[in-house]
Design a binder for these strands. Structure first.
Length: 296
DNA sequence: CACGCGTGGAG
DNA sequence: TCTCCAAGCGT
């Protein structure tokens, strides 16, 4: 059977089963789609929904965000996680304002050059906002292709050029249909062909799935070692940032000392936040979110 | 290219 | 409870 059969079957399923997510509405602009894609990097849909609405209500165009401080972006980011994304999204807004007349570019290379925009996000915007024909390869798509096409239980840990090629070969020729197929693949991976407990009984590709045909073999070993969190600098950074987000004005170092008892690790985490541009010193022994003007 | 980077919910 | 993991990016 032809490769684009996958796309046709997935798209037909998508027509009936797609979630109605707000960034998929027809009149949503490229800026709103870009914001959604950045927020969705490693953060589940349910948590992104309210944050996305609030963000766009406050900063409906890139120039509005570019004119505000990093501190406000970090605060609006709330608890979505990986707050460096908030910083990059604001830098992205600055770049759009300065170099692109406040408009999200349509060219893939121009998109890739934006802060916080990598291979996945650039192609997602080009496809979903502008209807271009590009393989849109995220973790869901890689898993779906690994199983349905290759017959492997899972994809490798990182996106490789070969993943783009393999996915591109599944896409219909017509750009608009290719973009819809990409959305369908992602939705299938998110709802049916999940990492744990795949629902093959509901899968429109079940009849042609190489992994299912092979008897759904399990992965040999752990595909990737689980990410640690408890006790890491990442946890300490999160604790420090939570205090800084919620406090108006400079936070005394004394207050930050309370979040973690290990002086060495706490200092390292704080220095990392400063290094990353999330936090800055405010006085002898006090700190604020970067560029914070909400003093007192 | 392997690693660091938050947070919270599901199984 | 604890483990896994969720539309990645930058270095």
């Amino acid at each position: 059977m032809s490769e684009t059969q996958f796309a046709e079957m997935a798209t037909r399923w998508y027509d009936q089963n797609a979630r109605d997510l707000p960034w998929r509405e027809p009149d949503v602009g490229a800026w709103a789609i870009l914001v959604s894609e950045i927020m969705l990097q490693q953060t589940p849909v349910v948590r992104v929904l309210p944050a996305w609405r609030a963000w766009l209500a406050r900063w409906p165009v890139p120039a509005a965000l570019a004119a505000d401080t990093p501190a406000e972006a970090i605060r609006m980011w709330g608890r979505l996680g990986y707050p460096r994304r908030a910083l990059r999204l604001r830098e992205c807004a600055v770049a759009l304002t300065q170099r692109h007349d406040g408009v999200v570019p349509t060219d893939l290379d121009a998109l890739l050059a934006l802060p916080g925009v990598g291979s996945y996000t650039a192609r997602a915007v080009a496809a979903f906002a502008y209807g271009q024909r590009h393989p849109v390869v995220d973790t869901n798509v890689r898993r779906l292709v690994a199983r349905a096409v290759t017959g492997l239980p899972d994809a490798g840990p990182a996106t490789r050029p070969a993943d783009l090629v393999a996915t591109e070969e599944l896409l219909p020729v017509e750009p608009a249909r290719a973009a819809r197929a990409s959305a369908a693949f992602m939705e299938l991976g998110a709802l049916v062909c999940t990492a744990r407990g795949p629902r093959c009984g509901e899968c429109p590709l079940a009849e042609v799935c190489a992994w299912r045909a092979a008897g759904r073999p399990a992965a040999p070993g752990p595909t990737r070692r689980p990410q640690q969190y408890a006790g890491t600098d990442r946890q300490v950074r999160g604790l420090l940032l939570a205090v800084l987000r919620e406090t108006v004005g400079p936070v005394p170092g004394e207050r930050l000392d309370l979040v973690w008892t290990d002086d060495v690790q706490r200092a390292r985490a704080l220095a990392g936040l400063v290094q990353d541009g999330l936090v800055e010193r405010a006085g002898a022994d006090a700190y604020t979110l970067a560029g914070d003007r909400r003093l007192i």
